[in-house]
Design a protein around this nucleic acid. Sequence first.
DNA 1: TATTGTTATACTCTATAACTATA
DNA 2: TATAGTTATAGAGTATAACAATA
Lengths: 146, 146
Amino acid sequence: MNLQAFLPYRLAVLSEAVSRCVSQVYGERFQLTRDEWRVLAALAESDAMKSTAAALYTTLDKMQVSRACTRLEGRGLIRRDEDPEDRRNKILRLTPEGRDLLDQVVPLVQAREADLLRALDFQERLALEQVLDKLLARARSISQSG
Amino acid sequence: MNLQAFLPYRLAVLSEAVSRCVSQVYGERFQLTRDEWRVLAALAESDAMKSTAAALYTTLDKMQVSRACTRLEGRGLIRRDEDPEDRRNKILRLTPEGRDLLDQVVPLVQAREADLLRALDFQERLALEQVLDKLLARARSISQSG
DNA sequence: TATTGTTATACTCTATAACTATA
DNA sequence: TATAGTTATAGAGTATAACAATA
């Protein structure tokens, strides 16, 4: 057994290091948790989004989304509107303040990502894309089958 | 902002999926936490190890190692001996029971890893190795510099 | 009866730092 | 004074499930 070469360990260490590196930006400067950041990032792409869609999109579960939204709403960064078509749903929307915050945080976070990717050449970036997709699909299929 | 394409997000999702997939083995069947598993895996390689060395090797901090060891010792899987050369140190060793457990769990965990890696061809595995190392080094250097 | 979202609860992790014993 | 390891504590995150409102 060689832990240093063990893929799950290496992925965990890398993911933690990368996450730390990015959460320095959205966490320390903008006081967002990872879940709040994910929900905001989801809303950055589509103006309005049901909670269930946000959960799917961010791979969070409904509680995590609910709690993140409570905090984001409390800070005035999003609204949660009723869905007239099905009043069980909540429709999440950025407020102007939320949009402002995103306009500040997104470039900084993307700069961090770019900085990370600068460690790789074009070929390596392409390879990484493929490999991440394939491993994720495999990991999910293994977990399901026990 | 496209969360799905955002590298830190993708790494976090993958790492979580892979970790879940592996901890099904050491967690459900052998009742080990991730930290306990890491400490045991470290001891699988060298018969005796100081706590500080174990912390470095597993990228855990001294508390995490201390607590994992308390539980492992409680289950009779490791011993913590005094270091005659410097009595502040604790020397960690597998007991025969710990060795037995490792002999059972390691092949299963490695089979999971092999199963994961079956998603990739030889070139992709090589590329993955390189890319993980480079990204980790970069992430650490970025975090340090703020 | 099923679904959406909220709340409750218990559990685990994490981070900081105080503490002890040695050096 | 510094280091190794333990313990304490508070805060954050996670998982399960109960619950209210709606369909």
